[in-house]
Nucleic acid binder design. Structure first.
Lengths: 112, 112
DNA sequence: TGTATTGCTACTATAATAGTAGCACAATAA
DNA sequence: TTATTGTGCTACTATTATAGTAGCAATACA
C-alpha cells in the first residue's frame, strides 16, 4: 500500500488495502463495513430516522452508524430527507441488485 | 447481547450482535466480514490455492484469510478440492445472486 | 417552563484485522 | 540422499474498527 489510511473511497484510489482497484473490490470493501448492508437494506422500503436505523441494526453504536451513514452519503448511495435518511436513486439501483439475496437467505439460513 | 463472542454463525442464533436474527441479517453479517465477499468472488471462475487467494485479496493476512475460509467452509459455501479451495454448490447459488453486482460496480465505481 | 425525542459527539474497552516471521509438509531437482 | 522451492498454514504484535455507554444541543410539544 502506498497510502496510510482510507476512511472513504476516493476517485480512482483503491480502498482499505484492496489493492487491485477492481470496481467490484471497491464496492465489496464499502459493503463489508459493519452495518453498511444493513443500512441499505433497512432504507429500501422507507426512510428512517437515525434512531430507527440504530434500532434495526441491532447493537450498532451511534458512532459507527454515523460513520457508516457519512460514508454512504459521501459515495451518493444514501441521502438526507425531511423525514430522515433515504436511499438515493443510485442507492435504489444498488438495492435492486441486492434484493435477490433476501429470498435466498430465507431459504438458506434455516439450513445452517 | 446474551452471548460473549460469535466466531461462527450457528443454527438459530443471531450473529455478531445482529439481534433481529432475520435471515438476511445473518447473511449480511457473514458477508460483511473482511474478504468474505472477495473470496467468494475469486473462487467463482476457478478453484484457487490459499496463496493464490491471498494474492487476489489484496493485503489479506494469512490468519484472517484462514479464519474466513474456515467460516465459509463451516457454513458450506466453500469447500476443499484437490486443486485448492472451491465454491460449493450452495456457494455457486449465492454467487449467482452476487454476480449482478459486478456489472453494476463497473458502471458505478468510475463515477466516484 | 418543563419534558421528551432526536441526531449526534466523545470516550473507553474489546474485537477484528494487518503485517510479519516462520514451521511442517510435499514435490522437485541435484 | 540432500537441497530447494512452494504451499498451507500458525503465532505473535501493532493498528484499526467497532461496541457500549454517557451525555449534550436542538427541536417539538405539553
Amino acid at each position: 500500500m502506498t497510502e496510510g489510511k482510507n476512511p472513504l473511497p476516493k476517485p480512482g484510489s483503491p480502498v482499505r488495502g484492496s489493492q487491485s482497484g477492481q470496481p467490484i473490490m471497491v464496492l465489496f470493501d464499502l459493503l463489508s463495513r459493519r452495518w453498511a448492508l444493513g443500512v441499505l437494506w433497512n432504507l429500501s422500503d422507507q426512510n428512517r430516522t437515525f434512531r430507527d436505523l440504530q434500532a434495526r441494526c441491532g447493537s450498532a453504536s451511534p458512532s459507527v452508524l454515523n460513520t457508516r451513514l457519512k460514508e454512504l452519503r459521501a459515495v451518493g448511495l444514501v441521502e438526507k430527507a425531511a423525514d430522515g435518511y433515504a436511499l438515493s436513486q443510485t442507492g435504489r439501483a444498488l438495492f435492486s441488485r441486492l434484493e435477490p439475496l433476501g429470498d435466498w437467505a430465507m431459504k438458506w439460513v434455516p439450513t445452517l
